[in-house]
Simulated assay, not measured.
Amino acid sequence: MARTEARGEQPRLHVVTGKGGTGKTTVAVALALALADEGRRVLVCEVEGRQGVSRLLGTEALPYQEVELAEGAGGGQVVGLAVEPRAALVDYLDTFHGGVLGGRGARASTVLDRAGAVEFIADVAPGLRDVLLVGKVYEAVRRTSTGRSDGGEPAYDAVVLDAPPTGRITRFLGIGDELAQLAAGGPIAARAASVAALLRSEQTAVHLVCLPEELPVTETLEAAAELRAAGLPLGAVVANRVLAGAGDGGGSRARVRAALRRALSPEDDDGGGGSGGGAEDLVAALEAQERVRAARVAEQRHWLEVVRGAGRGVRELPDLPGGVDLEGLYRLADDLAASPLPSPQDAPAPAGGAA
């Protein structure tokens, strides 16, 4: 994320995906906030109609227009956009086919809408639907201060896409190639080819969010292999909800035991009396919970090593016991700002041919 001579120019399009329930939307929003903390103007897009971004930030539902959501500590801004297939299709028709139809001066989308063609294309042609969704993100990445892609400063320093889950991410990002091959030339094929070129360029990084558990890690590594085979640029694996390690063992337990004895039996300085047993029982219960936690920590570390052993760069984010409220979201953003995500150029090569 931060630009240095060693790291060079970083991607402008960050695609964030992950198995359902791993917190990919949380990571996408936290990443957008972290980039804004560096003074950047950032657009965060969602394409699944779930309004996860607005719920996390406590704002009104995102419309199909760009709205300012938050300011970064470094003076940057986070702008949000919910991309909806039908509206994206209307945009496309008016941009590329906006001439007069039938000599009446109506917009292309208006004429086709009356004929029912807009609903048909948006709902029945899933390949074109995904191209339109990604195409809107492509337009935001390419847009400049002049409103064109061939001059002026970029409208956004970075775009973060809260993408579909790993189960369909390769097809979603590769749909431009498929449509370009099916379309016999024309603006649709040209648009699809341009989108595909951006997604394979150094301007893009695909980040995979997982939990340090068997099923999410397995699906993450499978998705990484598919993305690599498709020629799409992999960024980091973001391991979410990682537990902190155990404490300092016996010394810590001794201090807890002594503190509990004093609290439960304040008049019994030597630790005797009936309350001592209650303190010992509570300490024993806490120790049992700590053993369970230590086992979970060890299991998580095992799956993190599995990911690293497959040659993937891993960025860990902490478990937030109270859940992700607004304060927790900014804490994750601070963590991401302090330790930037690897770009595709920084990520290690697969070990032994693994993805």
Score class of each variant (00 low, 15 high):
Val15Arg: 01
Lys136Glu: 14
Ser145Leu: 06
Ala223Trp: 11
Phe172Lys: 04
Ala106Gly: 11
Arg331Ile: 06
Leu13Trp: 01
Gly39Leu: 08
Leu320Lys: 03
Val16Met: 07
Ala61Trp: 07
Gln289Ser: 12
Ala285Asp: 05
Asp123Phe: 07
Ala184Asp: 15
Arg296Trp: 11
Gly245Pro: 09
Val118Gly: 02
Glu60Gly: 15
Arg171Cys: 02
His302Thr: 13
Val306Arg: 11
Ala6Gln: 13
Tyr92Ser: 01
Thr25Asp: 01
Leu56Ala: 03
Ala279Arg: 00
Glu327Pro: 02
Gln289Lys: 07
Thr95Pro: 06
Gly23Leu: 13
Gly271Phe: 08
Leu93Thr: 03
Val44Gly: 11
Gly116His: 11
Glu287Arg: 04
Ala259Asp: 05
Arg262Cys: 01
Arg129Cys: 06
Arg114Asp: 12
Ser275Gly: 13
Gly99Trp: 06
Ile175Asn: 09
Val131Lys: 05
Leu243Phe: 09
Arg241Thr: 06
Gly251Trp: 02
Asp157Leu: 07
Ala338Ile: 09
Gly271Met: 03
Ala73Phe: 09
Val79Asp: 10
Leu179Asn: 00
Val27Ser: 01
Leu243Tyr: 12
Asp123Ser: 15
Ala140Val: 00
Leu57Gly: 03
Phe96Leu: 15
Leu81His: 13
Gly353Cys: 07
Gln203Trp: 10
Val242Ala: 10
Glu71Trp: 09
Val324Arg: 04
Leu304Val: 10
Ala28Arg: 09
Arg104Leu: 15
Ser194Pro: 04
Ala354Met: 12
Val42Ala: 04
Asp268Arg: 14
Gln51Lys: 05
Glu222Asn: 11
Ala196Cys: 03
Arg3Lys: 08
Val297Lys: 02
Leu93Val: 12
Thr220Gln: 07
Tyr92Asn: 00
Gly18His: 01
Val159Asp: 05
Ala338Pro: 02
Ala258Gly: 09
Leu198Phe: 12
Gly309Ser: 11
Gly103Arg: 07
Ala263Pro: 01
Val15Thr: 07
Ala225Cys: 06
Glu60Gln: 14
Arg293Ser: 05
Gly21Cys: 02
Val209Pro: 01
Thr95Arg: 15
Ala108Asp: 04
Pro342Gln: 10
Glu119Arg: 14
Asp268Asn: 12
Arg104Cys: 08
Glu68Thr: 13
Ala230Ser: 10
Leu57Val: 08
Arg228Ile: 04
Ala184Tyr: 12
Asp94Gly: 01
Val53Gln: 10
Ala32Phe: 03
Val292Arg: 14
